[in-house]
Structures are given as C-alpha cells and as structure tokens.
Design a protein around this nucleic acid. Structure first.
Lengths: 263, 263
DNA sequence: CGCAAGTTGAAGGATTTTTTTCATGGAGTT
DNA sequence: AACTCCATGAAAAAAATCCTTCAACTTGCG
C-alpha cells in the first residue's frame, strides 16, 4: 500500500502536556474483547492527528499526546494495550521514553516510529524494549497491521512479533530468520534486506528504497551492491528452503513472492 | 533502466519551439491525465539522477533539468502535476523560480528542497508559492509520500490504486497488469504504454504523447519504436484475453476501445 | 598486538532480458 | 495505381542483472 500521509483525518482536541484526546469506540464492545487502548506519543501535530484519526476509525480507543513526559505519566498509569511513540521527541527522547516505561514494569506493546535513515536507532529502540518499529513514512494499513500482530500475542508474553511470509519467518528483535524452520545464517546486511522485503511482502521494493534504507545512499551509486547482496541472500534462502521467493522486477526492484502467492 | 537524462532533451532550446509537445488530448476533457508528470529542477547531478530514478521506479513520468531557467520554461508550458525544485540553483534561484512559476499562473504542486536548516528560507519558499518543502537529506519514501499527499489535496486527482478498463486491470504500485484475471508479463516499456493507454481509456493517445512520456523525446524521431512495442503489447493482451482492445487511429495514435464500447 | 574468521563492496565477465533497428508485406487513402 | 502509414518478425544492440572472486576492513580473542 502506498505510503500516504494524509493530514485530512483530523481529530478534535489533541493535547500538549496534561490532558489528552480520548476517543470512544464506534461500535460497542466488551472490556475483554473489543476496545483496545492505544497511547500515541508524537510531537508532530499532523502526524499525531493522522494516527489518532486512523486508529479511531479502526475501532481503537486512543489517547494522543505530544510530549514525552506527559506520555510517560500516562503510560505508567494508563493500562494501555499499545503505545505508538515517535523516536524523536522534544523533552524526553523516544528511546529514553521506552526505557523508562519498561523500567516502570509496564507491559504494553510498544511500536516505535523512526525516520527511514535511522536504522541504528531502531536496534537501540528494540533493545530498549520496543516490540516493533515502523519506518516513516508509513501507511495506516501498516500501522494497524503491526498493532494487530502485536495484540495477537498473549498479554504478558513479551515475545517479539514475528514477520512471516510463507515458510519464511523473521524475528526483528532477535536478528534471526528461518526458512521452513531451518535457521538462516544471515549477515547484518542480508538480514536488513530480508527484513525490508518481508515488511513489504508482495509489493515491489525499489532499488532506491533499498539503497536508502540499507546503505543510506541518497544518490544513485553505479555499483551493484544491491545485486551482490541479494544474490547472497537468495542463495541462502534457496539452500534452506528450496524455492526462490525473491523475485526480481526488472527495472524497478525486488519483490517477495510466493510461488502460489496471492494476487 | 534508470533513464538517462539526455541534455538535448532538457535544454531550453528544445522547449519554446514547436517541439513535439502537441498535447492535444482529444475531447472529453477527462481530468484523468496520464501518469503523473513531475518536473525536477536540481543542479547537483547525483541528486538529480537519484530523484529522477527513484520517481521513475515509482511510476512517475519525469523530466529533469539542472538549470533554473530551463526549468522555468518547461514548468510554464509543460503541464506538470508536480515540481520538485532545489532552493539553491545556479542562474535562477529556487525561490525566484517558484515566484516566476506562480506568476505565470502555473498550478502545479511544488515541493522545494532545502539543504539549509534555516526555517527562514522555507517560509520564504512557502510564501513564494511552494506547497511543501523537504529538508535535505530526505528519503525517497518521504518525497513520494509528500507528492502523493499533494496530488490528492485539490481535486480528485488522486492516484487510484487500480486502473481498470473492461477486463484489463493494472496496478501501478505493483507494476503488474492482468487481463481477465490472467497475469500479463509486461516489460517496463510495455507496462508504461498500457498504463498511459488505460489512463486515457477511450481517448486517442497520440504518438507524440507516447514518445514524450515513455521515451522523453520532445521531437519526433523517425523510428518505429512505438509501433514495435505496441505490436508486442497487443499480442500479449491478445494472448491473455482474446480480443484486441488497442485500436489504432490512423494518422494520430492509439486508443483503448472495448469492442462493445465504454459505459 | 597480531591472528583468524567473518563481512563487505568493487570489479568484471557471463547471462538474461529488453529495446531498437531494419526489412518486408499489408492496409487504407487519394 | 501510387502513396503513405502501420504491423510484425527477426536480428542486432544495449541494458540490466547475476554471480563469483578478491582485497580491504572489522571484530573477537588469545
């Protein structure tokens, strides 16, 4: 799905420090099953309101704040099911925020939002206790999908969310991947490649995106790094599983595609 | 095929004159223009080619120039959907560029690239008529997201996920097309041809338009590239669906036409 | 500190796919 | 009929991609 940031979904009152925006569930639901409570900590107003509105439409009960400290207070006493927090925040940094929340023994599932060129930070975030991360810009669909994935796990089980695609399984927090249960011994670069492919499974990931997200290139080098590593990744996956899932889309990039993949 | 920028295509002298820019879309005035056309005005070669290549991979039709004046000429007569312009340009400054473009009553969405973190310049840019700005370094994903966001802001100029015409379905983001559910294995060029035809479904697409949007030719070469590719595209569609939807309008170009006519 | 093991990206040739050219014959027009 | 425009297949040309090798570099460890 296209990464669209549409600021048009605006929600009424979103607050700075003390208060917040509470939303009700559109359709009624029981305490146990229905309304999942999500805390949003994001300083950029447009983005915050976009997330807020989007999750509201998905049936979540949201609470959005712009400030890290305010968010922390809420997180600790709010019994939220999930927390969406920007890495870069004024006052209290996103990573410090996460660390603080975990120190307070809060079990909420946390998704960290990071700019695309902050791979390093992502790992830091996961180490700090985030359950997953999402690179900006992202689509509402992606966020909802990751939230669902997280909430599917048992409440107290802080098991990391797995990315799965057919026989491929990748664990972002453990930096491990497997195919048909067989462990893939991937180098960091290969891991990142597979990670990106899997997060966009079924869709084309352009060479530019890969160069950008893995190599931080903001120009087009005339090298063939992508091809080289893709080749290595492919052969490892092939050795483990047999089929070649990584399809090349000539002129554009690559795509993870199951032989009998969905339309 | 990260398309190369041939200076002869982007230099000013090609512009003002007759140049193959007879963009006469046959009546109907349907707002559904072809693929979104983006003008890139950026002097740094690496950056320019990076943006150019990246947007190409995303399916945009791009025109890239290094010079502000050349860009201005293009912007004024080019009917671009979006313009990406660097703030710092040799010759004609980015802000002056924007001002000039707006003075010429051009409605294209403009995104200004600013290397400086100086808010001052950004505001100046927005005042001059830019719709948005992006600070360097930025990620391709961000640029694409902003472009998408902008292109849907005004009218219904939104880029719909799927293009459909009778049994033909084309998914721009996945670079895939199908006929009667059967997947069409198209090369990049064929894909672009079909894309343009479908966006103008029912209307004649002139050879000039095709040469310009697919090949970046601003003049009419004597080759028969168009015919050749159209032929191949036709046969592929025929193999998949049976009927031949691509009608040739002798002396003008081609048109996508259902045997039973459009609704 | 120096070695061993592992990782990375450049280089470059092989391979595959795509694009273009070109020649020919057909179709439509005047 | 003469002419122009178009369709098409074959073959040449040009890209794009694959994949292996190699030297530089990093890291962990004795």
């Amino acid at each position: 799905m296209p990464h669209i940031i549409d600021p048009s979904h605006s929600s009424p009152n979103v607050i700075g420090s003390s208060a917040g925006s509470d939303r009700k569930v559109p359709a009624g639901g029981s305490e146990s099953e229905g309304a999942l409570r999500i805390l949003i900590v994001e300083d950029d107003r447009d983005t915050r309101e976009w997330i807020d509105g989007g999750l509201y439409e998905e049936g979540y009960v949201t609470h959005a704040v712009a400030d890290g400290r305010a968010g922390l207070a809420l997180a600790v006493q709010g019994a939220f099911d999930g927390i969406v927090v920007d890495r870069k925040l004024p006052g209290l940094d996103g990573i410090s925020f996460i660390r603080a929340v975990r120190n307070a023994d809060v079990q909420s599932r946390i998704i960290m939002l990071t700019a695309l060129c902050e791979t390093h930070q992502r790992i830091e975030g996961l180490d700090a206790g985030a359950d997953d991360y999402l690179g900006k810009p992202f689509s509402m669909a992606e966020l909802v999908a990751r939230l669902r994935a997280l909430s599917r796990r048992p409440a107290l089980n802080r098991e990391s969310p797995l990315l799965e695609w057919g026989p491929l399984v990748l664990d972002p927090t453990r930096h491990s991947a497997s195919c048909r249960g067989e462990r893939l011994e991937l180098t960091p670069t290969e891991f990142r490649l597979l990670d990106i492919l899997m997060r966009h499974a079924g869709n084309v990931v352009t060479r530019s995106m890969l160069l950008e997200q893995v190599w931080h290139f903001h120009f087009s080098p005339r090298t063939s790094v992508v091809e080289t590593h893709m080749s290595r990744l492919r052969s490892k996956v092939r050795d483990a599983g047999g089929a070649s899932f990584i399809e090349t889309v000539r002129g554009y990039g690559y795509r993870l595609q199951l032989p009998t993949g969905p339309a």
